[in-house]
Structures are given as structure tokens and as C-alpha cells.
Amino acid sequence: MSTTLSARGATDMSGTSAPSTTQAPAHQTVRVPMVDANLPRLKAKDVSVFYGDKQALYDVSIDVPEKAVTSFIGPSGCGKSTFLRCINRMNDTIESCRVLGDITLDDQNLYDSSLDVVELRARIGMVFQKPNPFPKSIFENVAYGPKIHGLARSKTDLEEIVESSLKKAGLFNEVKDRLHSPGTGLSGGQQQRLCIARAIAVGPEVILMDEPCSALDPIATAIIEELIDELRENYTIVIVTHSMQQAARVSQKTAFFHLGKLIEEGPTEGIFTNPRDKKTQDYITGRIG
């Protein structure tokens, strides 16, 4: 499938599904294959997080299936973003933050002292809530990761990486004529896709997305959602979202967080159609939030 086609397809889709909330689950059942075929490589066991004396996360254990989209949902302040930031150790940058428990990737503990955090973050990329391109050209934004990690042996190498990353992010055709103009000049949706291209340029295994569409309009959201669906062929994706419809649309596995605890997890279909926990049901039906 070519990138142009996919982008167009996404636009078409947005006309029907994105603004509508009731159709979303039906949409999801059509497109999503079963999850359990994919073996988990990323596992979390009894993860607790403290900010100073305040505990933000309580004993979270979850397996993330490979080459599939896992979504974390829950009301704001429930700890879903905190947990996401544990996975590539972005919480290290917060001084008062302490993480207990194990998170493993291929049975290697991410919090092991022998593990290199710089390399870890190249293997587990991240896309943020607000598009945050660097104040550099589009090319330089994507080339940043390969450059610092020494992935390109020559200038042509680098150009190839940038082009293929932009293509994978479905952005190449829109920007190929202005690769050297500033990345901040793009529209919000384009900026977010630039950030995704930037993340995949270093060839990560896992991509973490922290509410990647919350700052975007419905059309841009639909394009990104389509892109996420495509990317799961090659990458393991974890997405935090406050929109249940989005979780239903893009993910194969869903985890529901509430007040720092993981309440329920399982195939997306199951969570939305037949939640086992009452809190999950209350949240999905809109009684808490």
C-alpha cells in the first residue's frame, strides 16, 4: 500500500467515522484482527511510581503484544501517562520520581543498571501530546536521531533514512519540495506526523504515543489513526488516549487505569463490549470520567 493512498484513504474515512461516536465500535470490529496471535516482548510486573512521597501508580502488571496497538485509557490523572513514560524511562528526567517493579523488553529489565538509557530510548521511541518538532528544518528534524546515534555512514545514507521515514509516516509527498524549510511551519497534523517520522528514523521496536491526537482537529486525527494502523505491521505501539472511541478504533488490546491502578486489561473488543469490572463499565458508559 502506498503512502499517498493511505493518506487519502484516511481522509475518506474521517468523513464517516471520526466525528461520529456511536459508529466507532462497529468500525473497529471490522478492521481489527485478533491480538493473541502476537507474543508479548514488553512486559511490566508490579510497577509502582512515586513522586516524592506521593504514589502515582500501584502495582501495575501488563503484557504488551508485539506488532499490535495497545491503548491505555482512563480518566485524567489515572496514571496512564506516568506508566507510559516509565517504559522508555522518561521519568528519569523528573527529579523526585521513583519507579519500583520490573519492566522487561525481551526479558531484559529496563531499570537494570547495566542497561543504557540512551540506547533504550532509541529502541523505544516516543511521540508526545503536543507536536514538538525542533526549531530546525524538516530534514534536520528527521535526521536528528540517526545522526546522534551514528546510524548513517554517509550523506546518501542519511537522505535515504529521512526519505523512507517520512514515507512511512505518510508525510513525504506533502513535504518533499520543502525538506529544508522549518518543521515548525507545518500544520499541526503534519507536525505530529513529522514527530512520528522522527521517532521511526532510528528504527525503534516500540513506539509510545502520549495522546498523540489531543491537540489536533478531527481530520488530522483520522489521518494519524490510519497511520498508526499501518505502522503496527512493523512496530509495537502503545498509545495513551482519553478518547474511548480512538482506543476502540485503533487498538487491539486495551488497559483501563483508574486512580493509579490498572483495573482491567484485555482484547479491545472485550473491554468495550463486555467489561468485567464495574468501574470500567462506568467509565465506558460515561458515568465517571
Binding site: M1, D116, V118, E119, A122, R123, P146, I148, H149, G150, L151, A152, D157, E160, I161, S164, S165, K168, V202, G203, P204, E205, E230, E233, N234
Partner: peptide, 26 residues
């Protein structure tokens, strides 16, 4: 779509990665 670019941090031999890392940390 197939993964055309083979460049990834995890594909690299461990000694090459370690050498580069050492330089960056320095």
C-alpha cells in the same frame, strides 16, 4: 509494506554500539 531500511539501533553489533556510546557519554 515491508521494512526497507535495515538501519536500527538494535541491528548493530554490540561492540560497535558500545564504542559509539562511550564516545557520546564522554
Amino acid at each position: 509494506m515491508t521494512d526497507t531500511s535495515a538501519v536500527s539501533v538494535s541491528d548493530r553489533p554490540a561492540d560497535v554500539a558500545a564504542r559509539l556510546r562511550k564516545k557520546r557519554y564522554a
